[in-house]
Amino acid sequence: MNELLERRYRNVLWLLPRSYRAEREEEMVATFMEFSGDVPDEENPRPRWGEIASVLALSMRVRFGGAGAMPRYVAWGAAARLVALLGLGFHAAVGTFTLAILFPQRPDLATPPLTVITAALWVTAFVLLMRGRTPMAKPVALAAGAVALAELVVRLDLADPFAPLNAAPQALNVVVPLAALLAGFHDDVPPVRRRWRAIGLAPAAGLLLRIAIPLLLESALWQSPMLWVWVEPTGLATVVLVVAGVICLARRLSAHVPLALAILGTLALLSRLPLVAINDVSSRPESIWVSSMGQCLALVVMVTVLAVAGFRGLPSVRQGRAVV
């Protein structure tokens, strides 16, 4: 047997969880060596890129609740799927809000085409995912993310030293739900077809926001600018996350729920920080800074408590395997 190639195959298998390697490593190494043939060490043999990719894909499935995974990894898979669903739901709500604003306007050069495309793709991806059409939802969501990131790059002002601080949270709000979508919804996860009533919640929230903001702009927002921090999409998402976190802790839900809410709360916190760090009191009311700081403090407390509850509720690695 080729010792060099065998050692390299074992190094590749370190991508897999230790518990999985303990049961399958010898079998997998023997299979790889059988198909590799007899190659002497002098030829410096290495695992094929396709084999490395297959091990990496298997590692992702196992770590996010694939068939036969440990209950701990099943919980992480459920958390990733919840992050993807809620993340795409947020983008679908904002997309509906954006389309509702642009729809009455006359289409002309002033209408940003990338914004329209991104909004439509987010809504479509969310609907497909909620209806159980995951293979179709993934490329649509990736296209939406690519267009959103392209739009972010186009709007990036390199002359502004604070531009990266503003752009980084927006990019993470796109990348993290997409990563959760790809990692959590793998081939071992059966599709779940949800009702149209549940699917309509996100677009309905966007339409409601489209109706409410103009009414507030005509009255309270002019007199109390601090309200804007609470009624714009990220501000409302912050309120929803804090309320959801309180309910989750009160009901002691499964570990994947507080973990998912902690991840989303961290994204919301990063989106709020620029309002605190870059606030120019000379050009912005101090009440906006105070409101932003209050949101950040609430998110820090909630994310910390949710993360602690989630990690404590995770099943032990020593527990037996579960089937998705």
Rank of each mutant, 00 (worst) to 15 (best):
residue 121 L to S: 04
residue 123 V to M: 14
residue 123 V to Y: 10
residue 124 T to R: 03
residue 124 T to Q: 06
residue 125 A to Y: 09
residue 125 A to Q: 02
residue 126 F to T: 00
residue 126 F to I: 01
residue 127 V to W: 07
residue 127 V to I: 08
residue 131 R to G: 12
residue 131 R to Q: 15
residue 132 G to K: 09
residue 132 G to D: 13
residue 133 R to W: 13
residue 133 R to V: 01
residue 133 R to A: 12
residue 134 T to P: 05
residue 134 T to N: 05
residue 134 T to R: 10
residue 135 P to K: 00
residue 136 M to F: 14
residue 136 M to R: 13
residue 136 M to C: 07
residue 136 M to D: 10
residue 137 A to T: 03
residue 138 K to M: 04
residue 138 K to E: 02
residue 139 P to A: 07
residue 139 P to T: 02
residue 140 V to K: 03
residue 140 V to G: 04
residue 141 A to H: 06
residue 141 A to W: 04
residue 142 L to G: 00
residue 142 L to P: 00
residue 143 A to E: 11
residue 143 A to Q: 11
residue 145 G to H: 04
residue 146 A to L: 12
residue 146 A to Y: 09
residue 147 V to W: 10
residue 148 A to P: 10
residue 148 A to I: 06
residue 148 A to K: 03
residue 149 L to Q: 05
residue 149 L to A: 08
residue 150 A to H: 08
residue 150 A to R: 08
residue 150 A to E: 09
residue 150 A to I: 05
residue 151 E to H: 11
residue 151 E to M: 12
residue 151 E to K: 07
residue 151 E to G: 10
residue 152 L to E: 11
residue 153 V to A: 15
residue 153 V to T: 15
residue 154 V to E: 12
residue 154 V to M: 13
residue 155 R to Y: 09
residue 156 L to E: 09
residue 158 L to M: 12
residue 158 L to V: 04
residue 159 A to F: 09
residue 161 P to E: 02
residue 162 F to I: 04
residue 162 F to K: 14
residue 163 A to F: 08
residue 163 A to D: 07
residue 163 A to K: 06
residue 163 A to I: 08
residue 164 P to E: 05
residue 164 P to M: 06
residue 165 L to F: 06
residue 167 A to P: 09
residue 167 A to G: 06
residue 168 A to C: 05
residue 169 P to E: 10
residue 170 Q to E: 15
residue 170 Q to M: 14
residue 170 Q to V: 08
residue 171 A to R: 07
residue 172 L to K: 09
residue 173 N to C: 13
residue 173 N to K: 07
residue 173 N to F: 15
residue 173 N to T: 04
residue 173 N to G: 15
residue 174 V to M: 01
residue 175 V to S: 08
residue 175 V to H: 08
residue 175 V to N: 09
residue 175 V to M: 09
residue 175 V to Y: 11
residue 176 V to D: 11
residue 176 V to Q: 06
residue 176 V to A: 08
residue 177 P to A: 00
residue 178 L to W: 07
residue 179 A to K: 06
residue 179 A to I: 13
residue 179 A to C: 14
residue 180 A to R: 05
residue 180 A to D: 03
residue 181 L to F: 09
residue 181 L to T: 01
residue 182 L to F: 03
residue 183 A to C: 11
residue 184 G to Y: 01
residue 184 G to K: 00
residue 184 G to R: 00
residue 184 G to E: 02
residue 185 F to Y: 02
residue 185 F to I: 00
residue 185 F to P: 02
residue 186 H to A: 06
residue 186 H to D: 09
residue 187 D to S: 14
residue 187 D to Y: 11
residue 187 D to R: 15
residue 188 D to N: 06
residue 188 D to E: 14
residue 188 D to P: 11
residue 188 D to I: 00
residue 189 V to T: 02
residue 189 V to P: 04
residue 189 V to Q: 03
residue 190 P to H: 11
residue 190 P to V: 11
residue 191 P to A: 01
residue 192 V to E: 12
residue 193 R to N: 05
residue 193 R to I: 01
residue 194 R to H: 14
residue 194 R to E: 14
residue 195 R to I: 03
residue 195 R to V: 01
residue 195 R to S: 10
residue 196 W to F: 12
residue 197 R to K: 11
residue 197 R to L: 15
residue 197 R to S: 14
